[in-house]
Design a protein around this nucleic acid. Structure first.
Lengths: 116, 116
DNA sequence: TGGCCATATCGACAAATGTCGATGTGAACG
DNA sequence: CGTTCACATCGACATTTGTCGATATGGCCA
């Protein structure tokens, strides 16, 4: 489940510009799959709307109504996929969204996108 | 796997505007999950780039390198989720993309989206 | 009408995934 | 130091999912 080099640029060849080959489709699908889960969408949403744009993992377990290991697992997936960054301060882990990563995905869904 | 009323409007509350509740997250995740597969992304891409914006199912099996039932299954999912429309003409089934549906999804990933 | 063709549906199965409880790790604090 | 706390990792398990071959459906044509 871990990649040496997350190839984000390859991720988002626009769907409607040219037919995707299998390799491109796999990379894009992996990115979308990370978002295609209610728990991870809510985590992303919670972090995005948190004061100062960052949220502590300790504040994310309760609202999700899932166990702490499960939350930790989902956060790790979001970080590995580049949608979140993690900064450990003392005993706590703080998360921030990476807007550029979301924008990259959006560009793949864009009609007639000029990926230049 | 079939819904009486596909609630597309509920689908795409912007992630970064307000924290998603579980129900909203489930709907959005379902939409993303449909796209989070290489075969379905390639189908969408093939239809989008086809001449006159429509493609016959008969031309989609070979490039995908999967069996005919598998292609049919993925096309059905894309239609049910609203990303494609199907029109049966004679013995053939013709598919078209629904750009508004993709745009709806894009709006959910939009930072600071004004969903008004 | 009978056969062929394109597509959809069915049933099955291996692989992937979300979830949990138990446990490991490492920082802070008395 | 030993304890506590926040978080990550591990191992397990039930469910979901992508895929296939076999078969059903329904239009077209000789």
């Amino acid at each position: 489940m871990s990649k040496a080099v997350p190839r984000f640029e390859e991720c988002c060849h626009p769907l409607t510009a040219a037919a995707l080959d299998e390799a491109e489709a796999v990379v894009l699908a992996e990115a979308l799959r990370v978002l295609a889960d209610p728990a991870r969408l809510r985590l992303l949403s919670l972090v995005a709307t948190a004061p100062d744009g960052e949220a502590c993992a300790c504040d994310l377990v309760e609202p999700l109504a899932r166990s702490q290991p499960t939350i930790s697992h989902h956060l790790a997936m979001l970080v590995e996929a580049g949608f979140l960054t993690r900064e450990k301060r003392g005993r706590w882990a703080w998360y921030r969204v990476v807007p550029e990563r979301l924008e990259l995905l959006r560009s793949a869904l864009q009609p007639e996108a000029a990926q230049a």
